[in-house]
Every structure is written in structure tokens, then in C-alpha cells.
């Protein structure tokens, strides 16, 4: 019994010698396999959430994501909505638009962005719109996150 146990332990130790180089040599393949697992996706709080709708206005493609209220369990009281302005070639010097993020036909907030200086202002229209979280150029686009109150959790 002891001999069998020792054989297993020494085999395990020898396998460790192989495991280190194999981990690195095959890391691309292993990480592709890992990436297929269901939990391997970026949390909406960091990715900006799922795309809600996309439309074109003033030569800009406007992508409005679904509001993000993700919490560890259930939904949080506060969240945000992400809006992306994508130009066909280059960003205009000034972006001014109203956004209807809950898709009810009435605007919920108005944004004004000076893309040269980065100065951005928010005009809340809906009562659940709080303030500006982030407004930044991202590669060719301009991305804005606006803080919201969760209407379902008051």
C-alpha cells in the first residue's frame, strides 16, 4: 500500500515538472477553453451593459445601452446608462442630443459635449436621472455614462 502511495506521489511530482511548461506553451488553447465557460464575460458595470437600441442622428450612430442596475444579488438602488456616439469618420466639435433610454417615446436626458475640451453637461429630464458619471473619448467614439436611480427599487 505504501509503495503504491509513493508511486502516485512521485508520479504527481514528475507531472508538476511537465505542468509548468505545458501551462505556458498551451496557454492560448487553455484560455480559449476557459473563455467559453458561462461566467467568463465582463460584468455590465464594467462593460457598460447590453445594447438597448441603435439609431442615427446628425451623422452620428448613437448606441443606447440598457440601464445597468446589477448587484451581487438582485438589483441595486443606483445604476447608470451608457450612451455611445460613433461618427462615420471623425467626431464633430460639439455633440448635443436628447436620449430616450427607456424607449417610451419621450426624452429622458439631454447631453451637451464639447469633444475638443471634453467639457460635458447633463440636463436631467426624467426624475430618475441623477448626474454625469463618465464622459470620455474612446478610440473614435465618445462614450457617456449617466447615473440613474432604479425605478424598480425605491
Amino acid at each position: 500500500m505504501k509503495t503504491i502511495r509513493n508511486i502516485i506521489i512521485y508520479t504527481w511530482a514528475v507531472l508538476c515538472m511537465i505542468l509548468i511548461p505545458v501551462t505556458f506553451v498551451r496557454s492560448t488553447g487553455f484560455s480559449e477553453m476557459l473563455a467559453r465557460l458561462p461566467f467568463m464575460k465582463i460584468n455590465p458595470r464594467h462593460s457598460g451593459g447590453e445594447i438597448g437600441r441603435v439609431y442615427e442622428h446628425n451623422n452620428l450612430k448613437i448606441t443606447v445601452n440598457k440601464p445597468v442596475f446589477d448587484a451581487l444579488i438582485g438589483e441595486s438602488r443606483k445604476g447608470f446608462v451608457q450612451v455611445r456616439f460613433s461618427p462615420a469618420d471623425s467626431l464633430p466639435p460639439f455633440i448635443s442630443d436628447t436620449i430616450d433610454f427607456d424607449n417610451n417615446g419621450t426624452p429622458d436626458l439631454a447631453l451637451a459635449i464639447d469633444t475638443k475640451t471634453g467639457q460635458s453637461s447633463l440636463q436631467p429630464i426624467d426624475k430618475n436621472v441623477l448626474d454625469l458619471n463618465i464622459s470620455s473619448k474612446v478610440k473614435k467614439d465618445w462614450v457617456v455614462r449617466v447615473n440613474l436611480l432604479n425605478p424598480g427599487r425605491k
Binding site: K41, I42, N43, L72
Partner: peptide, 19 residues
């Protein structure tokens, strides 16, 4: 939550999460 709470890339680029 079945998600990764980090503003990085799952598979692409330098120091990807899965790698």
C-alpha cells in the same frame, strides 16, 4: 453573478483575464 468584475479583456490583448 456569472460575470467577471474587471474592466479588462476576456481573451484578447495583453494580460487577458482567461490567460
Amino acid at each position: 453573478t456569472q460575470t467577471i468584475i474587471f474592466p479588462g479583456s476576456i481573451l484578447e490583448g495583453f494580460a487577458a483575464i482567461s490567460l
